[in-house]
Design a protein around this nucleic acid. Structure first.
Length: 424
RNA sequence: GGAGAGGUCGCAUAGUGGCCUAGUGCGGCGGUUUGCUAAACCGCUGUAGGAGAAAUCCUACCGAGGGUUCGAAUCCCUCCCUCUCCGCCA
């Protein structure tokens, strides 16, 4: 969410952001509603002032006759106020609904584009491996090593469900702890956060209203399953005014993540690339309201994620996400894509985002700066590691001629093996 | 799930229909006094919106949302959260 005052005073900047982000927001409708709501609110305020004055006169009235006359007058005003307030409320709700759809303004360094295909590769690390045998995809590898049971997973929970088994199950634990340890060592506070969240938390991150169909609902309890721990970490400080000395707050949370994958029928139907439930370690920073500082943090988070990919010996590239592929709330965003040999291309495994105060406004999360002024914080988030998706490049890049998997050195202490072979 | 007690300014508390423009204490900030520190004393101390050149003024906010009333922190309803006990439970 942007500051309404900012939108009012800089409609051209917002209009340009709407265009670049390929947003469907009707900005002129929003501006007109804003004018109406402001005028209405002012008029109601004047009426209320009158009413307050008369109410005091009622208290101090000398005779019953005067008192009755004043009460009648105040009652008429009260009726007028409540009538006008109903109108205002309806208009304001419309305005707020539009306000939630206003995209953030992309940073100048962000390339303009319509979608994923116009993201710009800004860095490559490692070389895609050459194999002198026929490459197998992760499904073949995992099934042969008895790490994965897709059929029985589907029996339990339908398509895009899976069962990790043997080294597959252990690998997920190993990966999560590996990532958690790495980020914790950099001064981030490790957390286990709720995977269930209220609507307000999802509105707060920007998952709602636009991405609502991607989220599982639990209507009986008015709860939702989070698609990322970002939701929980944004929601946990909602409404607070933090002391300046608390910032930056650096957190790293592991949580299960749930995504309906509505509209992705036919994409990545094979294997564990795109599933309804996965586990993720997520980095999160709550920082001061300083754009340049925020963009520095974005690079820090990117560096942390890159180190993890490097430690796992995965060839990757860093993509600067273009305006049309960025979420509404984002100012600037990088994806890390790891090399997937069976597909002969890079696939997204990490997503790094700076949102400035866009989420902070939604959850009303502020801090007191050095001068005592209350300001909205900035928020950033980036994947540390998400499994089982990361298993796709991990297993495929490190496969050997006999179908076993070489475990990268950094992961060996966590997994307790240097080669994943068939279970004994 | 059942019974009960609560939620008031950064913290602690007072406030049971109009004198609440929310009192008091603590903390914080500024000042006076002072070799230094401390103490004492004095003043200031929330958020949001609006009017104004400014001093200042107006409106809303006492967990959230409704309602009663000329008037609600206070009365009524719904919900949320915390605590105590019972039940269930990894």
């Amino acid at each position: 969410m942007l500051d309404l005052k900012f939108i009012r005073e800089n409609p051209d900047i917002v209009r340009e952001a709407v265009r670049k982000k390929r947003s469907t927001l009707p900005l002129d409708e929003l501006l007109e509603l804003d004018r109406i709501v402001m005028r209405e609110r002012q008029e109601i305020q004047d009426l209320r002032e009158q009413q307050n004055r008369i109410s005091k006169q009622v208290r101090d009235a000398d005779t019953p006759e005067v008192k009755q006359a004043l009460i009648a007058e105040a009652r008429a005003l009260g009726d007028e106020i409540s009538r006008r307030e109903n109108v205002l409320k309806a208009e304001d709700e419309q305005l707020q609904a539009l306000l939630l759809r206003v995209p953030n303004i992309p940073d100048e360094s962000v390339p303009e584009g319509n979608g994923e295909e116009e993201n710009v590769a800004v860095k490559h690390w490692g070389d895609p491996p050459r194999f002198d045998f026929e490459v197998q995809d992760h499904v073949a590898l995992m099934e042969r090593l008895d790490m994965l049971d897709l059929a029985r997973g589907a029996r339990v929970a339908g398509s895009r469900s899976y069962i990790l088994k043997n080294a597959g199950a252990l690998l997920e634990f190993a990966l999560m702890r590996f990532a958690l340890d790495r980020i914790t060592k950099k001064g981030f506070t490790p957390l286990i956060v709720p995977a269930l969240a209220r609507e307000a938390a999802l509105v707060g991150t920007g998952q709602f209203p636009s991405g609502r169909d991607q989220i599982y609902e639990i209507p009986k309890d008015d709860l939702f399953l989070v698609g990322t721990a970002e939701v929980s970490m944004t929601g946990m400080y909602a409404g607070e005014i933090l002391p300046h000395s608390d910032l930056p707050i650096k957190m790293v949370a592991m949580s299960p993540c749930f995504r309906r994958e509505a509209g992705s029928f036919g994409r990545d139907v094979r294997g564990v690339m795109r599933v309804h439930q996965f586990t993720k370690v997520e980095q999160y920073i709550i920082a001061e309201n300083d754009p340049a500082g925020s963009l520095d943090w974005l690079e820090v988070l990117l560096g942390n994620a890159e180190e993890i990919c490097q430690a796992l010996e995965l060839p990757y590239r860093v993509m600067l996400v273009c305006t049309g592929d960025m979420g509404d709330g984002k100012v600037k965003s990088y994806d890390i894509e790891c090399w997937v040999p069976s597909e002969g291309r890079y696939r997204e495994t990490h997503s790094d985002s700076a949102l400035y105060d866009w989420q902070a406004r939604r959850v009303n999360l502020r801090y007191r700066d050095e001068s005592g002024k209350v300001r909205y914080v900035h928020t950033l988030n980036n994947t540390a590691l998400a499994s089982p998706r990361i298993m796709v490049p991990l297993l495929e890049n490190h496969q050997q001629a006999d179908g076993s998997i070489r475990v990268p050195e950094a992961l060996q202490p966590y997994l307790g093996m240097d080669i994943i072979g068939p279970p004994k």
